[in-house]
Nucleic acid binder design. Structure first.
Lengths: 215, 215
DNA sequence: TTCAATCAGTACGCCAGCGTATGCTGCAAG
DNA sequence: CTTGCAGCATACGCTGGCGTACTGATTGAA
């Protein structure tokens, strides 16, 4: 993001972080050794000291990303016993963290690459699983929770996409806050159980609000 | 899509279509002259007869894509006077046409390129505008229609993304049909709209609101 | 038949990015 | 101070894709 800051003695992780930066702003293809070295103010000689080849760098970056994503999610989770608030927090983060969003989109776009695809799939699956779990904690049965969580997750991702691809059209400022509220009250079937915070995903007295669908 | 079919006398449009195929399956970077020529069973000599350079091919492909997207949308529109059914049809198409979805995602991923970005933005804006218009026809005021249409569009896009990035997790078969219905009845505030125009987009079923964000 | 336009093939130079080999420098242990 | 090694620089060869110049081949009209 900045100029060739002539840092001394880079570490492998710094290379990986730089690779993630490059991805976030210009996609996986932008993770190329010589340009990256230039941006870091060194030459290839340094790179091939820390990594066997470009692929190794990509792998390291992916690993870093996956770790970040999972630990970040966990960190966001730990302190929040109320499932409703948990989901709200996840929404918030998804619609706030700009770099994380672009990173996800960049990696997802490159998921033809089997290495990338595998990581993207794991991260997606983990997010979805956690969302579903939160919806169940809200009082939905497993099936409905799966539908709603997929719905909500798709909307997360879609917002990032629209925000990037049509920034002019995407709500901002006050309107965004309204938009956000609309999504919240639409995507979280409240009025359900959330009154008393539930610690375990056991379904209490649950009335099926949006009744399970059937043809 | 198939093997080097040794066709005779390709046209520029065939090159452009092939370019779109390449994009859909492997991104913009895959639109490279020599590989494309191989896939088409010819050599570069042919290509540079039809196009000045690679950029011209990309531009032609983009033009083709934009035309397809707009005419397709219009074609889908013209015969359907009922706004509800119009939106349903758009939903259906968004969740059905696999190639179109991948194409959009590929182009969106490459929207750093200013030429690509401009087209993506125009197409997105047009889709959003049409969706908003349909929501207004449902009886929502302009503002609410804008919020709901953005919401719905983001969900469209997000579905494509999730379907591509986590195909295992995405509903399919019967479950998909349920999922689809859930989205429809959640994202289209019918019931309230069709008869009497409504100015406030309150969800009719929803009773109480958790106090949402600190806003 | 001729010939000109249209389309494709061949051969070449160029460049960016990858990877390798090897040389240079500073710093810390002996 | 010298030795060793971590960290980076330099120089080189290789490949793939771009673009150019030129040479065929086919076809339809004069």
């Amino acid at each position: 993001m900045s100029e060739p800051v002539a840092k001394q003695n880079l570490s492998a992780e710094q290379w990986a972080e730089a690779a993630l930066d490059a991805m976030a702003s210009s996609g996986l293809e932008a993770v190329s050794v010589e340009p990256l070295a230039r941006r870091l103010g060194v030459t290839k000689g340094s790179f091939y000291w820390h990594f066997a080849n470009r692929d190794a760098l990509v792998r390291a970056a992916l690993e870093l990303w996956e770790r970040h994503e999972t630990t970040d999610a966990i960190a966001l989770v730990r302190d929040e016993p109320d499932p409703y608030e948990r989901i709200v927090k996840l929404f918030k983060r998804a619609n706030t963290s700009h770099r994380a969003g672009r990173l996800y989109l960049a990696l997802a776009a490159a998921s033809d690459d089997p290495a990338v695809g595998a990581v993207v799939q794991r991260v997606s699956a983990q997010r979805l699983a956690y969302l579903q779990q939160s919806y169940q904690a809200l009082g939905l049965n497993e099936h409905d929770a799966r539908l709603w969580s997929t719905f909500a997750y798709a909307t997360f991702i879609g917002n990032q996409q629209v925000h990037r691809d049509a920034p002019e059209q995407f709500p901002s400022g006050t309107e965004f806050r309204e938009y956000f509220k609309l999504m919240l009250r639409t995507l979280i079937p409240h009025g359900l159980a959330a009154v008393a915070p539930i610690q375990n995903a056991e379904h209490p007295h649950v009335v099926s609000l949006h009744k399970t669908v059937e043809s």
